[in-house]
Design a protein around this nucleic acid. Structure first.
Lengths: 187, 187
DNA sequence: CTCTCCGGAGAACGATCGTTCTCTCCCTGT
DNA sequence: ACAGGGAGAGAACGATCGTTCTCCGGAGAG
């Protein structure tokens, strides 16, 4: 038998793969069990319901997102470059073969009606990202009004890249962001 | 009994209301029957399957979108104003109490895995909108590279407004679009 | 070695859903 | 008035899903 921590990890990772690839409602708990190699009994001991598992998956995605953004910003010299690094991170993500959209947006569209806990996590993630961008904008010395514009570009790039299956959206959004930053700093 | 055309309209409108409010998978065909006041037998005579009904609903949404965009652009004096009119249309839409996101994006996130016909309609809609924006950009005399930037702002405004439940995203995206247009024309 | 207990495999259960079928009624043509 | 056909109401059917329960084997304590 395996350790409880490892079982939890394996279940969350398996659920993430399946939910992201096929959608939450299209994946049965039995498919999660098969992919994770953890019995249903064990899964339900770790997560009281499927919704709780979805929330755990989103928490994992949030950690991955934050780590990716931070790594991309690490070797940027200025706040301006750290803002643009967001779009470099998106660019690399969009080019991964399994990419098909932001998991938070997808799950929100699918479950926001019936699962308030899930909707809350999605909202928290988007709020936290907005706060991160706002801090970078302040560091760059640009007016606060720039921050939501950058966040909207990042959101739009994700859905455009997903639906159009076109990774170019990252570069297009990056160019737009650069223009907006320069205009905001010149004002 | 009612005319076949009217039955079709009533079914599509009822399905649109229910699908948009609760999600496609969360609404059973029996709920559509109750809301439309059209028997299941009749519904299945008009639409061979639920997926076909979803496609019909999206076609209706596309017509509404095009009409709304056209109406908003109607009293704009220049191509630049017709581009900005897109965001005025979004602003009015975001403020409607039943707004919770772009139906195309929501449905895409929910069904793109299992319903290729649905995914196709969503892709067509986004492509058509991109083409509309590209034409306006050409009319304004701006470089082609501006068009996808505007489209990304529109997409981002929709998801941001939906998840954050904040209609301000339209005005923020509009301001960003104005800055981008002016920068593109000055270059 | 034996008893006990924990966990895995998977059957079972109740609910729901998409789709079809049956039964009945009403409208129409003659 | 009467036969026939189409439409509505809703039961029926088969499949699936989330969740729980049963049964059995195997590991560890005495």
């Amino acid at each position: 038998m395996i350790d409880a921590t490892e079982a939890r990890e394996r279940v969350v990772e398996a659920a993430d793969r399946l939910f992201y690839a096929r959608g939450v409602q299209a994946v049965g708990m039995d498919a999660v069990r098969a992919e994770a190699g953890v019995s249903l009994k064990r899964i339900y001991a770790l997560f009281p319901s499927k919704d709780d598992l979805v929330v755990a998956v989103l928490h994992g995605r949030r950690a991955q997102w934050n780590a990716g953004i931070a790594a991309s910003a690490a070797d940027a010299a200025s706040a301006r470059d750290r803002i643009l690094a967001i779009f470099d991170f998106l660019d690399a993500w969009f080019r991964r073969p399994d990419f098909h959209g932001c998991a938070f947006i997808n799950v929100f569209g699918e479950l926001s009606g019936g699962a308030p806990g899930v909707a809350r996590v999605v909202r928290e993630q988007k709020e936290a990202f907005g706060e991160y961008v706002a801090q970078l904008v302040r560091d760059a010395g640009a007016p606060d009004s720039l921050a939501p514009q950058i966040a909207i570009l990042a959101e739009g790039a994700q859905t455009t890249a997903a639906i159009g299956d076109d990774p170019e959206a990252a570069a297009q959004a990056r160019a737009a962001a650069a223009t907006l930053i320069d205009a905001a700093l010149a004002a």
